[in-house]
Amino acid sequence: MSIESITAASAGTTLTSPVVGGGVFSGTAKALDPNANTMDKKAFLQLLVTQLRNQDPGAPMDSNALMAQTTQMASMEALTELSTTSRESFALQMRVAAAALVGKNVSYSDGTTTITGVASAVSFVGGVPTVTVGGKDVALDAIATISAAAPAPLTPVVPT
């Protein structure tokens, strides 16, 4: 038995899906995100439970089909966790990269000219870290070049 895909459902939409034995169930799509084309774990479980409740007693759901659906749910959970971990890892990498720029010469383009200056601070307030260059906040992904800052000039020490 297969489950037809459900896409772009919004809250309050009625879902229908075939059940083994020719029966049909319906339910309200409250667990679906109206801005996404995917089902979440809660919607998947509601769909599975509704199928089990409304199956034809004379032709119950095949245990292989049930196992396949359970496996699909486990795969979906694993992929969701992997996606979350990847996003968190990327965010951490951006923070480390931005912090490593402090004290270095960086350049960026403001649309017409290339501006070079020393990165003096980093902010992690938004989704993309910003680097302060010459008093202006620049998004990390706008930085074009990085070089070691020029060493401070040596001042001779005269013994007294």
Rank of each mutant, 00 (worst) to 15 (best):
A78Q: 11
E4Q: 05
T70K: 14
G126V: 01
T116W: 01
T132C: 07
L154Y: 09
T84N: 12
F90P: 01
P151W: 07
P151Y: 04
G134P: 08
Q55G: 03
V19Q: 00
S123N: 04
Y108C: 03
G134C: 10
G117F: 02
G103K: 08
N54M: 04
M1C: 04
F25N: 01
T114D: 07
T112N: 05
Y108F: 13
T112C: 03
D40Q: 03
S75L: 11
I146R: 06
T13W: 01
S26G: 11
A152G: 10
K136G: 11
V138N: 01
E88Y: 03
V118I: 08
K104L: 12
L48N: 04
L92Y: 06
P156C: 10
V24K: 09
T116P: 05
Q46Y: 06
A139D: 13
T145V: 03
A148E: 11
T50A: 05
L79H: 11
A29T: 01
Q69D: 14
V19F: 08
Q51F: 02
A144L: 15
P151Q: 13
A150W: 05
T132L: 12
L92R: 02
T80W: 07
T38D: 05
D40G: 14
A139N: 11
S86Q: 15
E81I: 14
A9K: 00
G103W: 02
S86E: 14
P60G: 04
I3P: 00
G12Y: 00
